Amino acid sequence: MTSHVRTAITTGDGVRIAYRFDGDEHKPVLLLSNSIGTDLHMWDDQVPALSEHFRLLRYDARGHGASDVPDGPYSLDRLGRDVVELLDALGLERVHVLGLSLGGIVAQWLGIHVPRRVDRLVLSNTAAYLGPPSQWDRPIAELLEAPDMRATAENFLHNWFPARMLQRDNEVVEGFRRTLLATRREGVAGSWAAVRDYDLRRTATLIPNPTLVIAGEHDTVTSADHGRELAATVPGARFTLLPTVHMANIEGQAQFLAAVVSFLTEQS
């Protein structure tokens, strides 16, 4: 049975978190966790290939998509607990987790704090630390004072995709632009606060789950060195470098999918 029903849970602090399943309910569950400024549709093009092997659970992080947008700074602890509450509400004891960018930070949190809920981890285009914290204060303040999301959206797109994808009307990039422009500033600013305040450089050593770290060779947001450092920190982690910028799942889709599927389906 293939399900495409989109629905929501409500967290302990009263925030509605939207989610959806895709794929056969008898397959192992793979949770997908998104970048700031995106919603669960950032994985749309990867769903057909991934759902051959997994039942996919996608969700909109608080502040994004069809989920609620509470005011104020968010914490990584809260973003991680949102996922735990989602798994609890759905009766899912243990899942694979694939997170990109902020989603990869949340995935690290899950491996550190609730490793028994995680089977295998894929940490893509992410980092254990993106400091110093002071560098985030001005962007957060400027975004909240801006008239709209337009300047921030263009900044994101230039950090996410190579110039060749930005030069003409690329349908995929246009989809990300529409999502960014529809995202409320409070959601992005709240999420940036979580990035500002987190530091997993020491605690990532506690992750016991089999882990694959994927980095983009030309990524200016979370650099290849960030990926190498993370892979060196998580015990036994593997490292894969793709010739991409930040959205490796989009720009390097074939290589990305090959690496993810191979890692998640191999016999332990």
Rank of each mutant, 00 (worst) to 15 (best):
D119W: 13
T244D: 05
R196F: 01
S191Y: 10
I112Q: 07
R177V: 02
G104I: 10
E93M: 03
L257M: 05
G99V: 01
T222I: 08
I17D: 03
V47I: 15
E229H: 09
T11G: 09
R168G: 01
L56T: 09
L90Q: 14
N125V: 09
P139V: 06
L144I: 05
D22Q: 14
D44I: 03
Y129S: 10
H113W: 04
R184D: 15
V84C: 09
V84L: 11
T203E: 14
H113M: 03
S3F: 10
I140W: 11
L230S: 02
P235D: 11
R228M: 09
L102W: 01
T7Q: 15
D13R: 11
Q108G: 08
E25F: 03
G65R: 04
Q135D: 08
L181T: 12
T183R: 08
S35E: 11
L157D: 04
T152C: 13
T211H: 04
P115H: 07
E93A: 14
E171G: 12
A146Q: 07
L144Q: 12
R20H: 13
F256I: 08
V245M: 12
D169H: 09
F156H: 08
D119G: 14
T244W: 02
R116P: 00
A66R: 12
R55S: 06
D45I: 03
E154S: 11
A163V: 12
L257G: 07
T2C: 14
T265K: 10
A215C: 14
S51I: 06
L241M: 13
A254L: 11
E85F: 00
S33Y: 05
D39V: 03
P28E: 13
R81Y: 04
E154V: 05
P243R: 05
A231I: 09
D71R: 10
L241H: 01
R120C: 05
R184P: 15
R196P: 05
Q167P: 05
I36F: 02
Q108N: 06
A153D: 13
T222W: 02
V47S: 06
L264R: 01
V114Y: 13
F256S: 02
P243N: 09
V245L: 06
L76S: 00
D219E: 09
L181N: 13
F256N: 07
L200W: 11
S134H: 11
P28F: 10
M149Q: 15
T222H: 07
Q253I: 01
S268T: 11
N34T: 14
L57Q: 05
A107K: 00
T38Q: 11
